[in-house]
Design a protein around this nucleic acid. Structure first.
Lengths: 148, 148
DNA sequence: GCTGAAATTAGCCTGTT
DNA sequence: AACAGGCTAATTTCAGC
């Protein structure tokens, strides 16, 4: 369950290139390929590693229209209810409960402004949602710099 | 330079598992392993694929304290000025200019609440920034589902 | 697409705590 | 005994023709 420095080194290598071979990673961290695989398998089983993914040019990916939407809800809403409803809207990419005047923030990533509008409408129609306040992204100044 | 439906299918598979073998992807999209590799190599060369990375448990990763901060600026601020200032604050992970009453939104990811407070203070001290409005993330309901 | 070369994977053995 | 690493061999996957 606990993570040691060797595990952290492997994660750092994977962050840069998730398709690196066990042999190459082993060379870099001073382990045999099998030892690297065992550690990766364990981290996957322990859910330390939650998956491997590809970084795609956002333009090509065609989901460069982004918005942040604050949700203001009626009364008290159970987080899992909100999760169930919001996760059913495909263009809702992330959702959080937050401190402050809003109850939650969702990030929408759509193909273009009309798609964004449709997704926004779906969020507003959720039964728990009283009102929303949106900020549409005009330009990405930088980031993301870390990796999830 | 252009991307066809087969390329898009390959990207979709990679998004779910960037360590999938060429053979497995070939089976799923109806191509030989070499054909899949040729397409991936081309997309990497064209910078459509910008890299492969790993999704790590945010807790383990140690930057699970997140906040979204709206920035309200004095007068007119050039986006590149904002980028220069904000990118100098390490825990600021992403920054956007947006529509609405705020001028920009930044996402902060810190190791723990004290680190978050320090980063927030730095943002507030930026000369262009007049005031801020923060929402600290209490819980991640889900996501991210897409990939940048 | 085929084929030699390389990587992956599972089993077994060893040394350390 | 429990655990982590290395080695080996069978299988799968890869990269150049």
């Amino acid at each position: 369950m606990a993570i040691d420095d060797l595990d952290r080194s492997i994660l750092a290598l994977l962050r840069d290139d998730a398709r690196a071979s066990y042999a190459e990673m082993g060379d870099r961290v001073g382990l045999s390929p099998s030892a690297v695989k065992r550690r990766m398998d364990r981290m996957i089983a322990d859910d330390v590693i939650q998956g491997f993914t590809v970084l795609i040019d956002p333009e090509i990916d065609g989901r460069s229209t982004e918005a942040y939407v604050e949700l203001f809800c009626r009364g008290t809403v159970a987080p899992h209810e909100l999760r169930r409803v919001l996760s059913g809207i495909p263009d809702v990419d992330e959702a959080f409960t937050v401190t402050g005047s809003a109850d939650a923030i969702v990030r929408i990533r759509a193909r273009n402004p009309p798609h964004l509008e449709v997704a926004l409408e779906k969020v507003r129609l959720a039964p728990q949602v009283d009102s929303t306040r949106s900020a549409i992204v005009l330009s990405r100044l930088f980031g993301p710099r870390g990796v999830d």
